[in-house]
Design a protein around this nucleic acid. Structure first.
Lengths: 334, 334
DNA sequence: CTGTTAGCGCTTTCAC
DNA sequence: GTGAAAGCGCTAACAG
């Protein structure tokens, strides 16, 4: 334990009595004479040698590193997505650099530039600004759950349109006669906007009057929603003029449950509610927090990582949509 | 836009008509003649040059990268901690490598070795095995919320003991006469174990009979808890022999709320409950999910990052405990 | 199949 | 002050 410096390949070579290149070959699994191999491996073990990925990265310009840009980890959806991405990244022998942008465009761009300095092997981004022209051409980019106008960058998402449609189908199947839509959206366009489009399409198909609250996201979303629901009460009978809610996200579904409860309506007896995302309860038992359209997060993450790692081999599809499913979570009859 | 390769310092030097070293100096903020500086900056802008952090890292063996090892992001506590760490990391101009070990020792060790290959500038770890001797001496390590037996590695945590004590104090203050403790613990020792010790100390001080469920974590925790509560019902009157619960985590507090509700007890009228961690509700409004002892996550994360970045300048304290606070969350009278 | 060697892009002496 | 040059630890091309 004399030297304080980490051993280098040179040290290993000297210890094993072979040339530098031979050590490199052993490490990279290139055919090497058995005798040599043994000696090198012994030396590696003895010195506790580890490759310096920075030196290797400099040579190969492959950093074995993926970058994820996501607004935050505060929402379970984001946290779970990040988690799944990390698991996939690990499985593919890569490291994950996590960037939480808080949805701030400047930070998003800053992260991109950091990532490109670090010569990351690929970027998976869920952003609220169009970062596509900030990303150097030579580094693969995949956009999750969003789409940009001015460049055809590959994007991956759930089939939000089908999900919106499915939610209404389910609500009708469960006996609702007037399902409505509630939700907030970012000003920046994203795949999630298609949920509302799916709702509208379903209304058209089933000849329903499309009633909805669909506003720009703000800080008073809870209050706006409260007022919206109250405005749909009959003044005298206090009956609601709707009997089903498709909420843009589980978060809004939860808010609706709470408000309806405060207003002394019963869920699902008076109003059935279906959310979107597939958020689980905070309990040691496995239940959805509301009845919901579940996004296939593990599959989505798998696709993201596999595609980005495949980017240099073949051209990537511009859009990849994965199917969603309905799951019961207590806010519908089944 | 002829060349497909990212520009190097050499390119900038040629473009600016200066020497390589001069460019380096400009970039690193070392005094350089005004004329030169301007020329270099112009060239940088023109070529859209960015330093290659891998080349720099190779030279300086400073990678401007921190590594976080955490079981997962599935629990809000982990997710929020990871988020806060990321924010701090960014603020200090570093990147964060996220490693979710699922609490599997082999994975934890694997991550350590990946991290040391990558010459990370520091590791913040919340692990379920003693990784301390896996970490090379020259890379700073801070352990969050845990402690290892066989080496004095700096650790940071909330004051769990004080939190446990405080919970009982609060319960008594709110009129409870027989508060009990429920919780599960990992077999691997951690700072969180002190919550139970705080509970025991409070029982001694206030002369309470210490009643508790404190078992090794398993898959049937919900059922075990259910049976435990039922076993404390009076056969005839159905009265419970306790009137307050301090739960080891908010998760267990939630489980207790649910079970008591199923059993037709009222929270907080019949039983008051205090959890631990400070988990927020999944709603667009800011409320705690249960009454709880809140861990100062942002402060904790700040401490972790600051300490690890300071590790080479001064010796780190072995233990740093940050104060917790009580917050109302609906499962107590106030 | 192995040893030698040139450089990846950068920082940092060292002369000037 | 600036330029030239050595070298961080590794890979890959080349010669043997």
């Amino acid at each position: 334990m004399a030297k304080h410096q980490a051993p280098t390949m040179k040290d290993v070579a000297r210890e094993a009595g072979v040339a530098l290149g031979t050590v490199s070959r052993v490490i990279n699994g290139i055919t090497v004479g058995d005798e040599y191999k043994k000696k090198v491996e012994a030396a590696i073990k003895k010195l506790n040698y580890q490759v310096n990925t920075y030196a290797r990265g400099l040579k190969t310009s492959q950093t074995k590193t993926l970058t994820l840009i996501i607004p935050s980890l505060a929402l379970p959806f984001y946290a779970n997505f990040a988690y799944e991405i990390e698991q996939q990244t690990y499985q593919h022998g890569r490291k994950l650099i996590l960037c939480c942008s808080n949805g701030i465009p400047e930070k998003e761009i800053d992260y991109i530039s950091l990532a490109s300095q670090s010569k990351t092997d690929g970027i998976i981004a869920l952003t609220y600004s169009d970062i596509s022209n900030q990303v150097p051409e030579d580094i693969p980019l995949i956009v999750f759950d969003r789409h940009f106008e001015n460049r055809s960058v590959p994007r991956i998402a759930s089939d939000n349109f089908a999900g919106g449609f499915l939610a209404i189908e389910k609500l009708l199947e469960f006996g609702c006669t007037h399902p409505i839509f509630i939700g907030y959206h970012s000003d920046f366009p994203g795949e999630a906007d298609k949920r509302f489009e799916g709702f509208q399409a379903a209304c058209k198909k089933f000849e329903l009057k499309p009633t909805f609250l669909y506003e720009s996201d703000d800080n008073d979303s809870y209050e706006t929603l409260y007022n919206f629901i109250v405005s749909h009460q009959d003044k005298d009978t206090h009956t609601l003029d709707f009997d089903g809610i498709f909420a843009n996200t589980d978060l809004e579904a939860c808010a609706a449950v709470r408000i309806l409860d405060d207003l002394n309506y019963s869920v699902p007896a008076d109003v059935q509610i279906i959310g979107f995302d597939g958020t689980k309860k905070f309990l040691p038992i496995d239940e959805y927090i509301v009845s919901t359209i579940v996004q296939p997060l593990p599959a989505l993450a798998k696709k993201c990582v596999e595609m980005i790692l495949n980017a240099e081999n073949e051209p990537l599809p511009t859009l990849t949509l994965l199917p969603v499913t309905y799951e019961y979570g207590g806010t519908t009859i089944k």
